[in-house]
């Protein structure tokens, strides 16, 4: 390792970052300019949103339950179990809802989209689109990116709702906290700002995940790691999962610190 290697590494990193930035700008431009692609977008929303519902609901129930359990155990030491609803609501809306929904989306959607796009690149299907004078950014990417930034906030809302009822089950039914204080406390404590924070996060996380997945798959052939073909497909898919995970966690901190 010497200075030249480090310089090459940095310049490669900046090159990738610049390419990804231009890619996102180009796709967003195609989302807002006609011709719009409604049917493919609806199909993608069905795949990313509707088909993820079961996973989101199951995760939501358990996360809500375990959060209520943890808070109950802590609050009971201070004799303030009446705050259980507020604690569960705020932590789900602000932090756990957007975050864990993002994790589910990374696993279900990010990996699938990246694998699909990179296989299309690998089998010359994207070149074929270019040669048929069909813009792959408009035809393939725009519906996927739009569908993800529509689906992610909705899935997050579902997750939070289900989570609140999971918490209700543990707090009210198992530990006999009064239902009035559970929901009433939540209603008093949760502010609009908390909801805005959750919504902003879910939107940004959705964008980060789909951006990473599409850009990694689309530029499969420019990946300079020395692997090719199916091996490269599996590599960029793994990269997508790891990279979007790290970026989402990083963005979570940044967004939280800006809004608070």
């Amino acid at each position: 390792m010497n200075l030249v290697n480090i310089a090459q590494y940095i310049s490669g990193f900046l090159q990738n970052l610049g390419r990804a930035g231009l890619f996102l700008a180009a796709v967003l431009f195609r989302i807002v300019t006609p011709p719009y692609r409604f049917t493919p977008t609806i199909k993608q929303i069905y795949f990313m949103g509707a088909r993820s519902l079961l996973a989101i609901v199951v995760c939501g129930i358990f996360v809500g339950m375990v959060v209520a359990l943890q808070f109950y155990d802590t609050l009971v030491r201070f004799g303030s179990v009446a705050l259980l609803g507020a604690a569960v609501g705020i932590s789900l809306i602000r932090e756990l809802g957007p975050m864990i929904t993002a994790l589910v989306i990374i696993g279900r959607v990010g990996s699938a989209v990246c694998a699909e796009i990179s296989i299309m690149r690998n089998e010359s299907q994207i070149d074929a689109l270019e040669c048929m004078a069909i813009d792959p950014l408009r035809y393939l990417m725009a519906p996927r990116v739009l569908a993800a930034i529509i689906s992610a906030p909705i899935l997050t809302a579902v997750f939070i709702t289900v989570g609140i009822f999971g918490g209700y089950f543990v707090g009210v039914i198992l530990f006999e906290v009064s239902p009035g204080s559970y929901f009433g406390g939540m209603y008093d404590a949760v502010l609009w700002g908390d909801i805005v924070m959750g919504a902003t996060k879910s939107f940004i996380f959705g964008l980060i995940i789909i951006w990473t997945a599409t850009v990694k798959g689309f530029y499969l052939h420019l990946d300079k790691s020395g692997v090719h073909g199916t091996e490269a497909v599996s590599k960029v898919t793994t990269d997508t999962v790891v990279l979007s995970l790290i970026t989402v966690l990083f963005a979570d901190y940044i967004v939280t610190s800006i809004i608070l």
């Binding site: 089998e123 010359s124 074929a128 040669c131 048929m132 004078a133």
Partner: peptide
């Protein structure tokens, strides 16, 4: 330009090695 290239490509057909059909 990209637009002109696409216009030109409408007059060109390309058959790829393994078909490159959308799966």
């Amino acid at each position: 330009k990209k637009k002109e290239l696409y216009e030109l490509r409408k007059n060109i057909g390309v058959a790829f090695q393994n078909g490159a059909l959308f799966s």
